[in-house]
Design a protein around this nucleic acid. Structure first.
Lengths: 223, 223
DNA sequence: CCCCCTCATTCATCCGATGACTCTTCTTGT
DNA sequence: ACAAGAAGAGTCATCGGATGAATGAGGGGG
């Protein structure tokens, strides 16, 4: 391709080189178009692509700015990748999650404070008697999110968020007997929390690994 | 926002719902514009955003198609996130890498075949006497890539690729004494390969963790 | 049967005009 | 003097139409 893609690369380049810093304002469209040597229409396509990727932020009536560029912001656009994945691809995503999440949980075991543990306890209590699949999945996601947030690494949090989107969970649960599956997931969550309360990082990691492995088996069964 | 972003969401929706399958061709621009109820200019911005994210592929003179949607393709657009990261953000990326890569290496230890091990041996031999920083970084990246590819999970490979781009490596190495750093990295690579040859997954994981931890320390020192 | 040319199709780029929104400044009334 | 509201300038959003460039298909010539 050409003009528009050139512009995308050039703007990216200006950011990487430091010429454009996070939060900075870009020249207005017609000026920037002239600088980069293309029409305003084509430049707009470039800008739109970059705003869709959360690299730029355009505000009507105001101007276009470089975003904060925090990775968890940029990672967000990937939830789509997870949403459309199925079959072998879904398995690949889940494998990565199985490699990563137990380690994160182990870290969390060492860093968890009382408030964190109370929060997890609360989520599990709420989910204990949930029978509705949709609602249980929400609790499930809450639990994992809260668990990972203990590590206090936004990149890690967003990555694991992507590796297990709601869409994916719904799809997997749909292929199983909902009742037993819910009870098993709940038991496994309890195991993880127990290990956290005991400050046993190795056990917590193992529990998390088992938990995800079980999901992987369901996925294999349902596909 | 409005029209264009609506169009982006609608097209994404059509893909997630299965109405548009990978490889499928979209209606031509003016027809699709009419279907979605916007002008061709605005639709083009939407399409450009989706092509930049590797979700669609536009071919002049032919048509616009849904891409294969493989996650490693979609992940590719994130290398930018890693390129612009520094300071706390770079540390977060590196922490994720330290959590993930050792586990991947452990898996690789169990799956490696003779050809894989030979390939790694070859890369290390080539890098042994390299003194040029740029060239050494290339060998470094080759080693890690080849190592992770053993697992045969494109999502994992692309993810680790992103977590440690060339830009980041150059930036880190620049803050250290190049000579000693190169020799240390080489020793650590040798340790990992030795563990792999011994089929010792746990040792391989530990070696990989130490290796990345050392990089983290350089990063802390250089910032 | 194969190669090359022609042509319809489709995306790429450009231009100009109008609408919508934001922020600032100035006016106005108290 | 101050606060509320109105007016204006600046900027992005959207539209419609025109022209260029690449692709692929089909026909004609060797």
């Amino acid at each position: 391709m050409a003009v528009t893609d050139d512009a995308i690369d050039k703007i990216k380049e200006m950011i990487v080189s430091g010429e454009l810093q996070p939060g900075m304002r870009l020249p207005k469209e017609d000026v920037l178009a002239q600088q980069l040597g293309l029409s305003r229409s084509s430049l707009r396509e470039a800008i739109r692509a970059l705003t869709a990727m959360r690299i730029l932020i355009a505000r009507q009536g105001d101007g276009t700015y470089v975003s904060s560029l925090e990775p968890h912001l940029l990672l967000e656009t990937l939830s789509f990748a997870s949403d459309v994945s199925e079959g072998a691809t879904a398995r690949q995503l889940l494998q990565v999650r199985r490699l990563l999440e137990p380690q994160a949980v182990a870290l969390a075991a060492g860093q968890a404070e009382a408030a964190d543990l109370d929060g997890l306890r609360e989520i599990l209590d709420r989910s204990r008697h949930t029978t509705d699949a949709e609602e249980f999945i929400r609790h499930d996601m809450d639990f994992h999110r809260r668990l990972i947030d203990i590590v206090d690494n936004p990149v890690l949090s967003m990555l694991l968020e992507i590796l297990s989107t709601q869409t994916q969970r719904v799809r997997i649960l749909r292929g199983t007997q909902v009742g037993p599956a819910i009870r098993q997931v709940h038991r496994e969550h309890e195991m993880i929390l127990t290990a956290l309360l005991a400050r046993d990082a190795a056990l917590a990691a193992s529990a998390a690994a088992m938990h995800i492995a079980a999901v992987e088996q369901w996925l294999d069964g349902s596909v």
